[in-house]
Design a protein around this nucleic acid. Structure first.
Lengths: 239, 239
DNA sequence: GCCGATTTGTCCGTATGTATC
DNA sequence: CGATACATACGGACAAATCGG
């Protein structure tokens, strides 16, 4: 980003990640950060607010801003924030690949509207993909995209990254994402396209994505093999 | 809370929840809210920031603040924010009960420290509880509390609410909570104390809680029967 | 296409309150 | 009690995006 507060946030975050500010120590107080970054008090506060919401620090009144982040050894595929499949795979250092199995236009009937949250009559793009890691099919995505906001989307693009296409080519910005995690039985369809070994249940992430216009543009159900699934979240009281 | 921005947040949130401000409509602009609530524009902005982080609205520059929350029919046990087991049960309208199975003091050895994130040598309170809904044992909690900050904790209190005890009696405030959701095999121990039917896997939520002092005071692993488990989360780009 | 009004986003400086030490 | 540090709130300024005439 190009805003001051976000650059300060990134700088502080990186210093925590690389251990410059360590777990259970205080970062410099506002008064010093003002001089360090040559900005106002409120801008520092905004940066620290973002740090807090990401679980890196916890401000303590009268004392200081404490680092509560500890670098963790997370072996598996970790979700968090809003990031694309490709980004998440790269961050976890995995060789990833995507296969598009279904690519068709549909019109939402009442049942589909109820299921996805779209309106009855919306023209949708129905997409089913399988995500492979090191050649193993571990994730199955069933997606519905609002067709009107994804012109020119092809199966080939879908096998790369729909988000990258939306943000890069179409100039769209993804903003808010509501996610729900549940656990479901694996179906015969799951078994047909995924390498499930003897697992009979899957971690299911249902995702409703809104663009900068506040329009719900995507509803995706991601079905993950349990041994490669981790979902991380930070909650802050009062926020 | 007694702060202005939080009261405004609650008022706006309630008006969204009761349908006064509806899905895909705009709430009044800052300029009007300033007059409505008799406060400064920054205070309004703070309130709206909290609304956004909770997934109720999405501000759109040049247009307004759009409501993107839709009342959902969530049948099961929904996690989200920081709330106690009792609060969540009540909110979901379920008859809930807790049984304490294990209640003992332990000292963290190296293995336990690695597992929980506490320091080697910390005095901990090891607690195992089973949560019952309508008489069925659906959740199993394995918790470690930092003993020094929970003086006077008894099995009886643990069967009520440890958080209520901490906040009410001890005057502590729970602030930040890092949670990780995974899916694991049910163990023989799980089967012994839970009503698992024929489920062989569980949704596992691992929780690290910090108090207002930035001290990690609790590490809990909650093991949920899949058919009664839902985890909800809202992510906002750039926050 | 341009201009002005509206609305949100960022940033600043200041004042006051509250908690810690 | 005073110094330090975070928390809340105010009011003002300008930028960026949108929309209507």
């Amino acid at each position: 980003m190009r805003t001051i507060y976000y650059e300060i946030y990134e700088d502080l975050r990186d210093k925590i990640l690389e251990g410059f500010y360590r777990y259970q120590t205080y970062i410099p107080p506002e008064s010093q950060l003002i001089h360090l970054y040559q900005c106002s008090h409120n801008t520092i506060r905004k940066s620290i607010s973002v740090l807090m919401l990401h679980g890196f620090v916890q401000p303590i009144r009268g004392k200081g801003v404490l680092v509560i982040y500890r670098p963790e050894r997370r072996a598996n595929f970790v979700l968090g924030d809003i990031e694309t499949f490709k980004e998440a795979a790269a961050r976890n250092g995995l060789e990833a690949q995507t296969q598009a199995l279904v690519f068709e236009h549909v019109v939402a009937d009442e049942a589909l509207a109820e299921l996805t949250g779209f309106m009855t009559g919306d023209e949708l793009l129905h997409l089913e993909r399988v995500r492979l890691f090191e050649g193993k099919a571990l994730i199955r995505d069933k997606s519905y995209f609002l067709a009107s906001v994804f012109p020119g989307l092809t199966p080939r693009i879908a096998e790369d990254s729909v988000y990258a296409y939306a943000e890069g080519v179409l100039g769209m910005r993804i903003v808010t994402s509501n996610r729900t995690v549940t656990v479901d039985y694996a179906t015969a369809d799951d078994r047909a396209v995924m390498d499930l070994l003897d697992f009979n249940m899957l971690a299911v992430v249902t995702n409703h994505t809104f663009n900068e216009q506040g329009v719900m543009i995507e509803c995706t159900q991601s079905r993950h093999r349990p041994d490669f699934f981790t979902f991380h979240d930070t909650a802050v009281r009062g926020y």
